[in-house]
């Protein structure tokens, strides 16, 4: 056993234990760690946005390099602060509208490309997609299962009709496919979380306590 003498290792280890103490119940140690975490995260975010966004992308070009057209985004950003003045607080809707409009417009073509067209291309029963499984003749079977799964799952998400008759049967099969997918994703992610826990335990038993190499 070779306990660390590095004070930062101790801070990190004690904070980890304080967070782990939540597994027992809410307690002063957890509250302390929670508030430190939130405070440090906010402090870090302020400096990060200042040094990486506001200064290089707005204040330097506008106030140091004299690029006056930057006054437009500056003014739009300042409108966020109007919410502190009740009489003109409605002005905050302008930058929010611009922001939402821009990003929704940008995301629509990308969403159609990635979530509709590419998915449809990959689901069609074609020789190319059979081979894409790299499973020989079994690729045909997998492609057919995928095709049925997609059609039935999509039918589950029909909202403007009651799930009765053929649609009801199809939706029932669809939700079974969905749950199988969830089960696989759950197992996969739990494995990833356990590896994170192992990483933290390795830190506590290694660099801190020196029990393991």
């Amino acid at each position: 056993m070779n306990i660390s003498g590095n004070p930062w290792i101790w801070v990190s280890a004690l904070m980890s234990l304080a967070i782990f103490s939540f597994l027992y119940r809410d307690n002063p140690f957890y509250r302390f760690a929670e508030h430190v975490f939130v405070g440090v995260a906010n402090g870090w975010a302020v400096t990060f946005y200042w040094h990486n966004v506001l200064a290089p992308s707005l204040f330097d070009p506008l106030f140091r390099q004299g690029q006056l057209y930057y006054i437009i985004p500056f003014a739009a950003g300042m409108l966020y602060f109007t919410r502190f003045i009740p009489r003109v607080s409605w002005l905050v809707r302008i930058p929010i509208g611009l922001y939402m409009g821009y990003y929704v417009g940008v995301s629509i073509p990308a969403t159609i490309q990635a979530y509709i067209i590419k998915q449809v291309q990959g689901t069609i029963l074609s020789a190319q997609n059979f081979q894409a499984w790299n499973a020989g003749n079994a690729g045909v079977v997998w492609s057919i299962i995928l095709f049925i799964g997609v059609i039935c799952t999509v039918s589950y998400f029909f909202f403007s009709r009651e799930h009765k008759g053929v649609l009801g049967l199809s939706a029932r099969v669809g939700i079974i496919f969905v749950m199988i997918g969830f089960g696989a994703a759950f197992g996969y992610t739990v494995m990833a979380r356990i590896s994170l826990l192992i990483g933290r335990l390795q830190f506590l038993l290694g660099p801190w306590l020196g029990i393991i190499e």
Binding site: I116, F147, I151
Partner: peptide, 28 residues
């Protein structure tokens, strides 16, 4: 928009079935 999305999904299903039939008849 929800009603329209449902029709969109119906359209996608139709495209999948038609495209698959054509791909199978011409390529397999």
């Amino acid at each position: 928009s929800i009603k329209g999305e449902d029709w969109g999904k119906f359209f996608i299903g139709l495209v999948l079935i038609i495209a698959s039939v054509i791909a199978l008849l011409t390529a397999l």
